[in-house]
Design a protein around this nucleic acid. Structure first.
Lengths: 337, 337
DNA sequence: TTGTAAGCGTTATCAT
DNA sequence: ATGATAACGCTTACAA
């Protein structure tokens, strides 16, 4: 155990200047209730003596900290790490620091994280909930009623407060419409877990696009599942079996798995089978065939979440998804590169 | 501004049980200096009343916190986000929380982050320094002498304390040796910034492999540069000009850029030109041609860094780099897939 | 404009 | 085994 015995405090500065700690505190806080002359003296002394405010003491006294907690399922998922990066940039600029917690999709870990953040008296929490949450009732219960909460990406609509969402329904609509326009006719979907609203919305967009085009919505080619490579592979095998000629995948890794299956079966992508993924992970543009993907803007989403907190907003921001058309859905070279 | 008026304190528990806060504190801390009976009563009351320790007050009193700071250049770089993920998992298990800071490669931001962490009286700091640091003199100056420091990936050898490094020299040696064994003869390198030891070491390994094979070390085909896609592209053009038939790249994105250039020039990879990258980014295995890469183990590195902190170690841990041989260096199908 | 004094919730040092 | 008391460093009524 170490002790920071050598830290300069406002009492030290006060003693050095022959004034009281209160005045020093006020001077450093930029209070108008202090003479210009004393302020300058204090600032000079603080600098010379190497003073740095003890944020722990300050936080205790004020009953709140300048920490913002961010809770994500997994830090090292490309999507979430970009969100964290964007949020940290904005928050740091505004004088906040970021405490990160990962739930690994476990509701229990989420509750623990929320309680921890509450114990730190964090100034706010940015949250993307665990996929295995059955609902959001535990969230305010664990966090308490007072700490501002911004939900992003995976949001519970019935929890009041700011929400930063992707335009999932619209995006999936556009992705599916694109497949239809490219000439595919029997389009299945790897839909993801229906425990998260965002997947429900993507499925709704998919369905709407089919309906608007006069195509039937066939439950047997909707694959509810996780969106990892392995599941995409299996779902694609079933989709082939079911006579599909395209898949809209609610994730890029499931799209990748689908392409694995199609390659294995000797089915040409995009000529005989179209694939669109979601998230615009970096590999989608690099691989061959490059994968068309419904891009999210995670860095921007993180920035937006941070701003929503900073501005004390409680509205919902919807961030568009961008459809990147690449080889995997480019039937008959319709969209020349 | 909100106040957590409703939080239960040890004083509340003490009042409810007709004992003093000191006893409650001791009971909750698991001190042996408290009767079994009282401990149980305290624990019961704490649970019933919904008590949660105010970590801010506790930290102030103890002069240290259970926060560990992690400083990285960029949170959303795949490599670093994996390190953070691995470190957080281990630290969280041990009761610590993680405050993250990103320097964006700026020494000034790094100093600010170190000072911030010091002000939080963090229990320790895990650091991968900014590429633009000329040396590490500022680090202890900003952080102070007392806080345990673990350096990882980018380390300053002359700063005492724990270090978690990749086996960069050995790795680059193996990567280069592999290119030689595959039959390439004029092997250049995109070496990265020499301001970070790890790139110096990789260059040394590259050089050693050439020497051991009796091949000349030619300065004109060593490209000192950043390791992004664009630089890789440009360096590869020069390498082609200089008559190279292979490149060892100290990063995967520069390898990717190199392949861009080779494709543009109509040079076949791997038959006429071999490429090995470094980092084993996820895209390397997915794209076509898949890129041979010297894989780091960032998640493991994060775990190691966390353990070094938890165990109070001050030694150096060297983590091997794994050579993943893929298409981009597989001349004449020497290594059958 | 500045000083006085109390207190944030906890823990450590005494003493009992 | 427990209690009384002080203190961590800062902020903020209130007083002067």
């Amino acid at each position: 155990m170490y002790l920071c015995v050598d830290m300069v405090t406002i009492t030290d500065i006060a003693a050095a200047l022959g004034i009281t700690p209160s005045t020093v505190s006020r001077a450093l806080a930029g209070s108008p209730r202090v003479k210009e002359e004393t302020r300058l003296a204090v600032e000079k002394a603080a600098k010379e003596m190497g003073y740095e405010r003890n944020v722990v003491a300050s936080n205790l006294r004020r009953g709140r900290s300048n920490i913002v907690g961010i809770i994500v399922p997994r830090i090292h998922r490309e999507f979430f790490s970009n969100i964290i990066g964007g949020a940290e940039s904005v928050l740091n600029e505004a004088g906040y620091n970021v405490l990160i917690c990962q739930t690994k999709e476990s509701p229990e870990a989420e509750i623990k994280a929320l309680k921890t953040l509450r114990n730190y008296r964090v100034a706010g929490v940015l949250l993307s909930h665990a996929i295995f949450d059955v609902n959001g009732d535990h969230i305010r219960k664990a966090l308490g009623p007072d700490i501002p909460l911004v939900q992003f990406d995976r949001v519970f609509p019935d929890i009041p407060g700011a929400k930063i969402e992707g335009a999932n329904c619209e995006g999936a609509y556009n992705a599916t419409k694109h497949l239809i326009e490219a000439g595919y006719r029997r389009i299945g979907t790897i839909a993801g877990y229906m425990t998260a609203m965002l997947y429900v919305e993507r499925l709704a967009g998919y369905k709407m696009a089919l309906e608007d085009a006069g195509l039937p919505f066939d439950k047997s080619i909707v694959f509810y599942d996780s969106i990892v490579r392995e599941t995409g592979y299996k779902a694609a095998l079933s989709a082939i079996e079911a006579g599909c000629d395209a898949l809209y995948c609610a994730g890029d890794f499931s799209a990748l798995g689908a392409i694995d299956a199609l390659r294995e079966k000797g089915i040409s992508v995009p000529d005989s089978f179209g694939v669109v993924g979601t998230a615009n992970e970096s590999f989608t543009s690099i691989m061959t065939p490059s994968i068309s993907s419904l891009g999210q803007r995670p860095y921007e989403m993180g920035q937006e979440a941070a701003h929503a907190f900073l501005d004390g907003r409680t509205d919902t921001v919807v961030i568009p998804l961008d459809l990147h058309i690449r080889q995997s859905s480019n039937k008959n070279n319709k969209w020349q590169k």
